[in-house]
Design a protein around this nucleic acid. Structure first.
Lengths: 114, 114
DNA sequence: TATTGTGGTATCCAACGGGTTACTGGAGAT
DNA sequence: ATCTCCAGTAACCCGTTGGATACCACAATA
C-alpha cells in the first residue's frame, strides 16, 4: 500500500491572482489611512497630518503624489495665503471605499475574537 | 479682506481608523495571494509554492506561520511519506474572502481605466 | 519686528523585510 | 545504492522604506 500522496491533479490552481495589482495601490505605509480620511470629504495636507499623527510629512507627501498619479485622488491648490492644498477622492478613488470598508469590517471581527 | 483660510473647525477628523489593525494581517508580501489561493480549498505547501511561482520557501513559510498564529488558517500534517502538510482557511479566515474579493474587483476596474 | 501658518523638499540614517543559496531527514521509487 | 520528493530551516546579503531633522518662501498677524 502506497503512503505516497496523490499528485493532486484533481485540484488545479485557481485562476491567476489580480491582487498584486491592487495591493500595489494599497501597499504603502499609511495609504489605506489616507484614503479612509479622504472618504468623508476633501481634506488639506495639514489636516491629514493631524488626522494621522504618526505620519511624517515626507511619507504623506509621497503617498499623495502616488495616489494622484494613479488617479485615485485629485489635488487642488486654493488661492489663499499661505496657499493651501485640498485633496479629494476622484470618482475612481471612491470605488476603493467598499474595499476599505470590507477590510475594516473584517478587522473589527478579528479584533473581537482575539 | 482676509485671504487666510478658516481654521476648519467645521470638519473634525473622522473616527479613528481600524485599518491599521487589518493591514497588519494583509500587509506582508504575498499574504493576500496566499489567502486567495486557499479560498478555493485546502492546499499543500508545495502546491502554494507552485501557485505563486515567485514566492520563496522562506517567505511562504513565514506567512503561513503568521496566519496560523492569527487564527486565519489551520495547519494539518498528513501521515504520509514524505509527510505533507495541508493548509486550510479557518472559519475566521473565510471572513476575509469578501474583503479580498472587493480588493480584486477594484483592482480590475483600476486596471481597465489605466 | 518677530512670529506663525502653509505645504512641502533635501538629506541622512537605521531597520526591516524579502531574496538567494545551501542544507536536512527519512521513506519510496528506480 | 542512489536519487527524488516533501516541507521546511539557517545564514547571509542587500535594497527599499520609512523616520527624523532641518529648511524653504511668503503673507498675515501680533
Amino acid at each position: 500500500m502506497s503512503l505516497r500522496l496523490r499528485k493532486n491533479k484533481a485540484s488545479p490552481p485557481p485562476p491567476a491572482c489580480p491582487l498584486t495589482e491592487c495591493m500595489a495601490i494599497l501597499g504603502g505605509a499609511w495609504t489605506p489611512n489616507v484614503i479612509w480620511y479622504l472618504s468623508e470629504g476633501p481634506r488639506r495636507f495639514g489636516e491629514l497630518r493631524h488626522d494621522i499623527p504618526r505620519i511624517s510629512a515626507k511619507v504623506l507627501s509621497a503617498r499623495l503624489k502616488e495616489l494622484e498619479g494613479q488617479g485615485v485622488i485629485a489635488r487642488r491648490v486654493m488661492p489663499t495665503s499661505p496657499p493651501s492644498v485640498e485633496y479629494t477622492l476622484t470618482e475612481l478613488g471612491r470605488e476603493l471605499i467598499p474595499a476599505i470598508n470590507a477590510i475594516v469590517e473584517v478587522g473589527s471581527k478579528l479584533k473581537k475574537k482575539r
